[in-house]
Design a protein around this nucleic acid. Structure first.
Lengths: 199, 199
DNA sequence: TAATTTTGTCTAACGGTGTTAAATTATTTA
DNA sequence: TAAATAATTTAACACCGTTAGACAAAATTA
């Protein structure tokens, strides 16, 4: 009497189908387009059926988050295991992380709360009132560069911005490290970058 | 016959009221709770009225984004103008940015697409399969530390993560710098942090 | 085999969303 | 006062997540 298991296998199968359908929809149309009814349509059921398999929409998102972490972990391990020295390993690990973020953009957005949705505001303020305009001036001074379009200035600006923004968003979406650690990172990173401007 | 202007002033006033109401709701209940009907209720009108002042909900978000950028710019300038040397100015500028992010969290989330909503997944994977577990091992090796709970390890991990995540999310939400510049930043930052592990 | 219980699935509905068209009320103009 | 214009609301549409109840199919029991 293996019918119990057959049925269980079938149920497990539609559970996976739901997740796959959701992932497909997101890849095709983005997170804001994901709805229970659309998932149902894709697996040729009606929406309430999904609640037999997942408590609610958040349950589906949680499952996808898990899958994302699993995948990211694999990629990072794979990259690490190609090298012997910790230096090379760190390089490879973070490059794998970087690649994952763009190859599996949808997963990344879900896992780390990156919204695409937010309004893009370009050329709306005079340059000297934008963060870019304000921060690049002292950068240029320190580097002895007068052309604000210089790639070296741009690179340094983005380096500052990335670390501060990264630290901020990690702290907004999940309570990251402690306050002291944050201050330490911020201070270390900024003085580090600033020092690098002068050499 | 200055009634035209009086009326214009009044209209301008409710336009501002709409924005203020929206901002209040978000501060009280978060972005996911912001709805046209709630804004309308707050300013004691009905929802369709808002469309006389803003094209749609996105129009309201855009206006709030503008206000956010303005405010951030002011704070950064204010901080900068307290110092003379570019080193001190850069310190002050990015500290002001950091403070803005938490003092005006709602603005920051809107401006830079930081979602709070995303599922928190903790203790779901064995530590050696998480990004933290994978990346801290070579960090510990390089630093000559065997305790994975050591704050110095944690700090360095967050430094790596912040810069990579920051660069990633900047590139996901708005097309940031060019690919070459991104690679440059990534490489510079990672080798920089790695070098700092050994001293 | 027939009756009964269980299971799977769907329909219909609730209260919410952004948005639009039409109706209504208030105000200004002639 | 009557007509025209502007301001505001009501009602509706199409969507959303979610739940309760109806229904049919399958499995179990008598």
């Amino acid at each position: 009497m293996g019918s119990k298991e057959r049925i269980h296998r079938l149920k497990e199968n539609t559970k996976v189908n739901i997740i796959n359908a959701a992932h497909e929809i997101v890849k095709e149309e983005g997170w804001q387009a994901l709805s229970m009814r659309k998932i149902a349509e894709k697996i040729e059921y009606t929406a309430p059926m999904i609640y037999e398999y997942y408590a609610n929409k958040e349950g589906i998102l949680l499952e996808l988050t898990k899958k994302g972490y699993l995948l990211l972990g694999e990629k990072m391990k794979e990259a690490r295991d190609k090298y012997e020295t910790p230096e090379e390993q760190l390089d490879a690990i973070w490059l794998a992380y970087w690649n994952f973020a763009f190859e599996e953009k949808e997963y990344y957005q879900l896992m780390f709360g990156v919204q695409v949705n937010c309004c893009v505001i370009e050329d709306l303020l005079p340059i000297e009132s934008t963060p870019y305009g304000i921060a690049t001036k002292p950068i240029m001074q320190l580097m002895g560069i007068s052309d604000p379009e210089d790639d070296r200035v741009c690179t340094k600006y983005y380096t500052y911005w990335s670390i501060v923004h990264g630290l901020v968003s990690i702290n907004i979406v999940r309570k990251g490290a402690s306050d002291e650690i944050n201050r330490q990172i911020l201070k270390d990173a900024i003085t580090g970058i600033t020092r690098s401007l002068k050499s």
